[in-house]
């Protein structure tokens, strides 16, 4: 039950992230420190390899989502120095956010919760790119948003769109 674990370096500090569905992710401190939330928390309490801190996470972060986040943090904790430099890292980033929309939201939310700013940048940009070239109806469908405009307002707004799309 230690997915996403890197080869343990002797005596390095570890922390266990526990998802709501019971999965545990054991990560090293460098990985955990990519997350502002975890970094701050761990600076409070500390952790050791023999007796790692267990940090429970809210239910909105499933193990699948956390896997993505941990994958990102591990790659970026290693930095551009390994596995082909910055170019490879950029490519990794690009591929990481090629997700279906539900997953994309969950990773976005997890990145926000765990305070991983650069991952949040990636996912937010991916969402922004996804909205481009969508009609109003498509955006509503994509986000599952129900229009709450009154009939009159809707009419006014509909008259606005032809001008923009002229």
């Amino acid at each position: 039950m230690s997915e996403g674990t890197k080869e343990p370096d002797g005596g390095e500090e570890k922390v266990v992230l526990k998802t709501h569905d019971g999965q545990e992710f054991t990560v090293d401190m460098a990985t955990a420190n990519q997350s502002g939330t975890l970094k701050n928390l761990l600076s409070e309490v500390g952790s050791s390899s023999n007796n790692p801190q267990v940090i429970p996470l809210p239910s909105s972060i499933t193990s699948r989502v956390l896997g993505k986040v941990v994958e990102y943090c591990q790659r970026h904790a290693a930095g551009g120095g390994r596995r082909g430099g910055m170019q490879a890292l950029e490519q990794f980033d690009e591929e990481l956010v090629e997700l279906d929309k539900d997953m994309l939201l969950d990773v976005t939310y997890a990145a926000a919760f765990l305070d991983v700013p650069r991952l949040l940048d990636l996912t937010s940009q991916a969402v922004a790119d996804a909205i481009k070239n969508m009609s109003v109806e498509e955006v509503r469908h994509y986000f599952g948003v129900v229009s709450d405009f009154t009939e009159e307002e809707e009419k006014v707004i509909r008259s606005e769109c032809p001008w923009a799309f002229e």
């Binding site: 922004a128 109003v136 955006v139 606005e160 923009a164």
Partner: peptide
């Protein structure tokens, strides 16, 4: 992000589309 990247017409219409989604 959308607003920043779609600074020029005609792609700026996507910002207008976003404003028509809901309140």
């Amino acid at each position: 992000r959308l607003e920043e990247s779609e600074a020029a017409w005609p792609s700026r219409k996507h910002v207008v589309a976003c404003a028509a989604v809901c309140r």
